[in-house]
Amino acid sequence: MTTRIQEAFDHAKFENRAAFIGYLPAGYPTRDSFLEHAKVLLESADLLEIGLPYSDPLGDGPTIQRASEVSLLGGMTVEGTFEQARALRAITEKPLLIMTYYNPILATGEESFIASAVEAGVDGLILPDLPPDEADTLIPLANTAGLKLTFLLAPTSTADRIKLVTDNCTGFVYAVSVTGVTGARAIVPTEVPDLVSRIKAISDKPVAVGFGVADAKTAHGIAQVADGVVVGSVLVTMAGRGESLHAKAQEILEGCRR
């Protein structure tokens, strides 16, 4: 059975472009406005990453840190995040992914978290602080439930790590564009082509590149080598200001064309 995630990457490839993956934190700036922004974003984006707000997001820069704080102050919970996903699943067939740090999964219980995610119509999880080495219980549970897992790779990753991570990614592979945390950057990440080619040399799974992508030009550069482009912080900033994401999402989508 082809999954929504695979279909999304196949569809983008058919249109001769990289898939556009948008990120928004659940409950930011409020539950209702998250849904409004997500709907607009999904008109352009091929996949949506929903951030599960966390108190100590050590892989995130200031934009997502602040958004997480706002969302948590607004009362966002694990169940609330699943509710937001459920509401989107009712109106879209595009893949929905939850990006979460590990402690909320541990607190909920791995089995229960996975069951709730599947029930809410979530297709996969993205795990920024859980390397496959520490996921030996989560991996079989997710596989059994049909929930896809995405682990991350970075410019510092060695051949051994690339092998381990790509072997365990069941959705797509997430390549971090720079050594660093999330956040919009003006510079074009120079380490991307090397990293993506090292990944592609040993894996045929789709590779999406994220961290620091904020405009069509950067997206376009990445689209030449990768299967997907992840855009987060710039959208979060705009959502926080109450601006429509329509034009920005269109711009990024155009940038994704090869």
Partner: peptide, 20 residues
């Protein structure tokens, strides 16, 4: 060798840091 004291310890960090 995996940095575990019983079930405690480990390496729950972004992949960027694993090689370091």
């Amino acid at each position: 060798e995996r940095g575990r004291f019983g079930r405690f310890g480990g390496r729950y960090v972004p992949e960027t840091l694993i090689p370091a």
